[in-house]
Structures are given as C-alpha cells and as structure tokens.
Amino acid sequence: GEHGMATLNITTSSVLVDAMLDRMRRAYRNKPDEDHRGMHKYMADTAAAVLLTGTCDAGWLDNIKAEVVVTMPATMLTGEETGQAELPAGTLVDDDTALMLAGSVSSWTRLFTHPVTGVAVTADVYAPTAALRRFIVHRDRTCRFPGCARIAKHADVDHTKDWQHGGKTTPDNLACLCRHHHTLKHRLGPDEGWKVRQLEPGVLEWTDPQGQIRTTEPPPAPNAVKEPALVSAARRGERALRE
C-alpha cells in the first residue's frame, strides 16, 4: 500500500474468523482507559503482536476466551434436517462443524422467534442475533440519545437495562446508541450520569444528571420497513395464487 503500509488477509473457516474477531473485540472493550487507540487500530495492533510474539502487549489476552454462537434447529441434532446452522451474521456453517460445536458445550441457549416474521424476539445470550439487530436498527433509525441524529446503521445496540443486572436481549430492552453516547451511558452509570428506561418498545425515557426528563421516540418507519417479513409473505402468497 501507500506510505509504507500493507494489508494482510487471512482466508479460513468462517467459524474461526468469527471467534478471532470476537476475541479482538473483547480485547478492545477491556483495554486500559489511558489507551486512546480506536477499535480498528487496537484490534490490528493486538493481532500483529500475537502473530509476532505469541502474546499481546498487555498480557491479558490469554485470559479472554472467544465465543462462537451457532444457531441451528433442534431437528438438525436428530438428523431430520441439514444445512440450517448459521453464525449470528447469517453465514452458513457446515453440518459437521455445527454438530461438533454442539457436542462440545455443556449448556444450551434458548432462542425464541416470532411465529409469523421469524425474527428472534428473545434469547439467553448477550448479543442480539443478526435478525433482531436489523429489526432494532430499522425501528430506531437514529441514535436514541436525546438530540443525537447519528444513523442507527453505524450505532451499537445497547441493553437499556444492563445485561449484568438482569436485562434481557429483547426488543423492549434494546435500543441503538452511537458509540459516543453508548460509552457515556456506561462510563458515568445511573448514579452520576443519565438514567434511562424503556416505557414501551422503542420509547425511551431519559433522566439527565439534573433530574430533567426527556423522552425519545423512533421516527415513523415506511410501511415497507415496519413488517418486512409480513410483506414478503404476502407477496409470496400473491405469486402462489397467480400460479
């Protein structure tokens, strides 16, 4: 590349890539407060340090275990169905790898989906599925912090009630926050910073440090975005009738 830079590409199993990226992201989230490198810079530096020295600069990466989440129907385990396992990003996982990973865990995660739309509405895991994230992004449209107009597509999906305090990965406890306001919410905490609760799915009530209350609601979504799965199902039904 230009200015003495270069790019290293690694092509391997999507399962391994998912685990490596998860480990790098966890490393970034646990970096020292005095380290001001951005996420991509920090992840690249940490990966380079591991490849060159076998360890990272801080030495704590060895204590972080990567997590691979694979979604599959129960019928795959009984041999009734094949080719249905996937990573959270929607990448398909071959049956042998999926069954091997399923056999190596000591517990299972329940995932409940809407019977009509197929969108995952709750799960016993921290990270929302790709389908649930898309739903929250389309619903919120922008960062939900008062006065912020950054688009939701590039925002974080935050648990309104923290996961570690019993918050669930459900639409009525998830909202889009840009990285700045996501960090602000968690760094100050409800005792010294902003308090927030979700009055109903997508309607957030914020209380600032001075006690003033502000409510933010997602802008109205086009009809085609509100229920994309239902629209698709209707179109499939129309085609079937014509045929």
Rank of each mutant, 00 (worst) to 15 (best):
F135G: 04
H3M: 10
S13M: 02
M43G: 06
R150Q: 13
V50S: 09
R214P: 02
P209I: 01
V119I: 09
G90H: 01
G202E: 05
V93R: 02
D57V: 15
T122R: 04
K65V: 15
S14P: 14
D57A: 14
E238D: 07
L204K: 07
D18A: 09
L204H: 04
D172K: 02
W60S: 11
R179W: 03
Q198P: 09
I64Y: 06
G103N: 11
F145N: 06
D62G: 06
V121T: 06
I136E: 05
E217P: 04
L51R: 01
C143N: 00
W194D: 06
W108H: 10
G166S: 01
G167C: 04
D124M: 05
N9K: 13
T82E: 12
R235T: 14
V69Y: 12
E67I: 14
H36T: 11
K153Q: 15
P88M: 03
G202H: 05
G38Y: 08
P171A: 00
T215F: 05
L92M: 04
I10H: 02
L111T: 11
L230D: 01
A127G: 06
Q210C: 11
C56G: 12
K41A: 11
E34L: 11
G202N: 06
M5L: 10
T129N: 01
F145C: 06
R133Y: 08
A152S: 05
G54K: 07
A6I: 04
R23H: 15
D22Q: 02
V70G: 02
G90Y: 01
H154S: 15
L230Y: 05
F135M: 11
E34F: 10
K31R: 09
L188Y: 02
Q212G: 09
T170N: 08
L241G: 01
A66G: 12
T160G: 03
R179I: 03
R144Q: 04
A98L: 01
N173C: 01
W108Y: 11
K153A: 14
E205K: 05
R179Y: 03
G118A: 06
D156E: 13
G237T: 11
L230Q: 07
W108C: 11
T160L: 03
H181D: 11
H138I: 15
S13V: 00
S13T: 07
L92P: 00
E67L: 12
T169S: 03
D162Y: 04
W194R: 08
P218E: 00
W206I: 01
K41V: 07
R25C: 05
A19E: 03
H40W: 07
H180V: 13
S106A: 13
A27K: 04
H182K: 05
T109Q: 10
R150A: 13
E80N: 14
A27Q: 10
G189P: 00
E81M: 15
V93A: 03
P32I: 02
R187L: 12
V137T: 14
V116A: 08
R139V: 01
H165N: 10
N30T: 12
Q164M: 14
K185N: 05
E227A: 01
M20G: 14
D45T: 13
P219R: 09
G118C: 04
P190F: 02
V93Q: 04
M20D: 07
R235M: 14
F135H: 10
H138D: 15
D33S: 12
R37Y: 01
G1H: 13
D96T: 13
M76H: 00
D140P: 00
